[in-house]
């Protein structure tokens, strides 16, 4: 058992066994959220997040931290939390050359228009990320930014909308 050759054999066995173990995944083996998906989520409006990513973004602080770092590098515009004096729901934010406004639909009061306007910027954002204070980061795809503006209609119970109305939320456009 203690012969040098047996000790070497044990080392080789360990490597073989561990490799078998690492590569033993079946369809049922859980997956960890990969950076590839996080990058697509932050970068590509066409990316549809997997349930695992959605779950991680709600519950996994490290994934949320990673996304925030990635967004801070990729942001077109950063609209920080509203001024401390702000009270009640926020219906307009303006910073970094962009303005976000909320308007209630006259057809249905439970539906709200989010208007995104480029005031003095020429870039076209394709994603809105809203981070609640110490909370999750929500993402909204801007399908159609043209002529310096975009409009997204949201249900009033939409999580993104709720977060947007909070003074302490931050908004990142990219």
């Amino acid at each position: 058992m203690s012969s040098p050759s047996t000790k070497d054999a044990e080392t080789i066995f360990q490597a073989l066994d561990q490799l078998d173990h690492l590569l033993s995944a079946t369809d049922e083996t859980p997956q960890k959220v990969g950076f590839n998906e996080l990058f697509s989520y932050a970068h590509n409006p066409k990316h549809v997040p997997s349930p695992a990513l959605n779950n991680a973004l709600m519950n996994d602080l490290s994934v949320r931290r990673d996304l925030k770092r990635l967004l801070s590098k990729q942001a077109l515009a950063h609209l920080p939390r509203a001024a401390a004096a702000s009270t009640g729901d926020i219906v307009e934010r303006e910073a970094d050359g962009f303005r976000l406004t909320l308007k209630v639909s006259k057809a249905d009061e439970t539906q709200i228009y989010l208007l995104i306007e480029a005031i003095d910027r020429s870039e076209s954002p394709s994603l809105v990320f809203v981070q609640e204070e110490d909370g999750p980061i929500y993402r909204l795809v801007i399908d159609d930014f043209y002529d310096g503006e975009a409009q997204i209609l949201l249900q009033s119970d939409n999580e993104v909308l709720k977060a947007l109305r909070k003074a302490k939320s931050e908004v990142i456009l990219r």
């Binding site: 173990h21 690492l22 995944a25 859980p30 997956q31 960890k32």
Partner: peptide, 15 residues
């Protein structure tokens, strides 16, 4: 602990 590593490899293979 080791299953986390297997999960990472699974993700890698499925990326």
């Amino acid at each position: 602990k080791s299953s986390e590593l297997t999960a990472i490899f699974h993700t890698l293979a499925e990326t």
